[in-house]
Amino acid sequence: MKISVDLTLSPLQNDYETHVISFIKTLRASKFTVLENPLSTQIYGDFDALMPFLTEAIKTSFEGTDIAVLTMKIVKTDRSDYEPHF
């Protein structure tokens, strides 16, 4: 099954940008489709392949920060081709 995942990483420390950039680079280096905007990053793929990848990427990111909040929304469909119609 195809899914779309919206992620927002918020490290609660002064050097937050370094951690956010590192996390996004990890997502970009994957085999999955990744789209970014100023507020979040979206990644698209097959559930069975994407979720283990995200688990490892999030764990690695969390290990490199003191305190972090990750907001994640999962939609059960591939929305990577979404275009607004207004």
Rank of each mutant, 00 (worst) to 15 (best):
T77N: 13
F53W: 09
T8N: 14
A68T: 09
V69I: 07
S4C: 11
D46M: 10
Y82H: 12
K73I: 00
K2A: 09
K76A: 12
P52Q: 08
P38W: 05
S61V: 01
L9D: 12
K76Y: 14
G64C: 07
R79W: 11
D6E: 15
F32N: 02
E56P: 03
T33G: 00
V5A: 11
Q13M: 13
A68E: 12
D48R: 07
T55I: 09
F47W: 13
G45Y: 11
Y44R: 03
T18N: 12
Y44C: 02
E17I: 05
I21E: 15
D15I: 02
I74V: 15
T18A: 11
D46S: 08
T60K: 15
V20K: 01
G64Y: 09
L35M: 10
P52H: 10
T33S: 11
F23V: 04
K25L: 07
T26Q: 08
I3W: 04
S10W: 13
S40E: 06
V69Q: 14
T60N: 15
Q42V: 00
R79F: 11
K76L: 15
I67S: 10
K2F: 11
T77H: 07
S4I: 08
M51K: 07
V5M: 10
D46E: 15
V20R: 07
I74W: 12
G45E: 10
D46Y: 08
H19E: 06
D78G: 05
P84S: 13
K59M: 09
I67F: 09
E56D: 14
L54P: 03
T8K: 09
H85G: 08
F47S: 05
T26S: 03
P84W: 10
A29T: 02
T8G: 05
A29V: 04
K76S: 13
F62V: 06
